Amino acid sequence: MSNAELYGKGVFTTIAMRAGEPFLWEKHWRRLVRDAGKVGLDLAQHTEESTRKALDERTIRNGRARITFSDESESALWGGDGATSIRLSIITAGQRVIPKSFRLTISPFSVNSQSPLSGVKSCNYLENILALDEARERGFAESIRLNERGLVTGGCMANVFWTRGSRLFTPSLSTGCLAGTTREFVLERFDCREAEADVEVLRRADAIYLTSAGLGIAAISEFEGRELRVDEHPIMRALDRM
């Protein structure tokens, strides 16, 4: 059996497709290469050009595409000969539906900011899925995960931003949050402070937003039972201008 099957060894990214073009392609490719290096994947046989060509052949105009590089080499712990085999796979789907009432809670499952997979979008993603399932079983659309120090990292499947007065904030990468491509897009366009903040800061926030390639930028209507204003902060129109 392969390292991907046994250990989830691989990396992926989800890209928003807009009018047939992969949005923020350069950012996604840069992160794929970086994350592949962190988990020990050699992408030498998959160039940026060949990967982009494979994506273009999917012919999806509007929606999302997931690009995955997985280690199909046989595990050395189970008699593998050490031969390298990295597989590229691409799946596509329509855009995610944003719930009209976007309710957010706190996850009971913490993030280990000292993990070697911290900040890596690896195929070992079951922990995030279980955290999301737990939130949905309680009637919420998403949940905020804290790290081992009680600091906000982000959602199960998204980065988080919040406002207090006129200021915009997001967790710093030191918390163990994912360096999301939409997060990077927002940081390049707005005066935003990257902060180490505990959950009480979110409880006092005027507005909360989740960002990801699948969601775009979504405003939260309720956090931990407290209704939030779904205001017209410029962040909500950032993607419309592209």
Rank of each mutant, 00 (worst) to 15 (best):
S2E: 02
A4V: 04
A4F: 09
E5S: 11
F12W: 08
T13G: 03
A16H: 12
E21Q: 12
F23V: 10
L24Q: 06
W25V: 05
D35M: 10
G37A: 12
L41D: 01
D42S: 15
A44C: 08
Q45L: 05
H46P: 05
D56T: 03
E57C: 05
T59L: 14
R61C: 03
R61I: 01
G63D: 04
R66Y: 02
F69D: 05
D71Q: 05
W78H: 14
W78C: 13
G82H: 01
S89Y: 03
S89M: 04
I90P: 10
T92Y: 09
A93W: 10
G94W: 01
G94V: 06
R96V: 13
P99I: 05
P99Y: 09
K100D: 07
K100A: 13
T105I: 02
V111T: 08
S113L: 09
S115V: 10
G119T: 05
Y125T: 02
N128S: 14
E134F: 14
E134Y: 13
E134P: 00
A135R: 13
A135K: 07
R136Y: 06
R138P: 00
F140W: 11
F140M: 13
L146H: 08
N147T: 07
R149V: 00
L151H: 09
T153S: 11
G154N: 11
T163H: 06
F169L: 07
T170G: 01
L173F: 09
L178E: 02
R193E: 15
D206R: 02
A207G: 04
Y209Q: 03
L210N: 07
G216N: 15
I217Y: 09
A218C: 06
A218F: 08
A219G: 15
F223V: 02
F223K: 13
E224V: 09
R226F: 12
R229K: 08
R229D: 08
V230N: 13
E232M: 10
P234S: 07
I235Q: 04
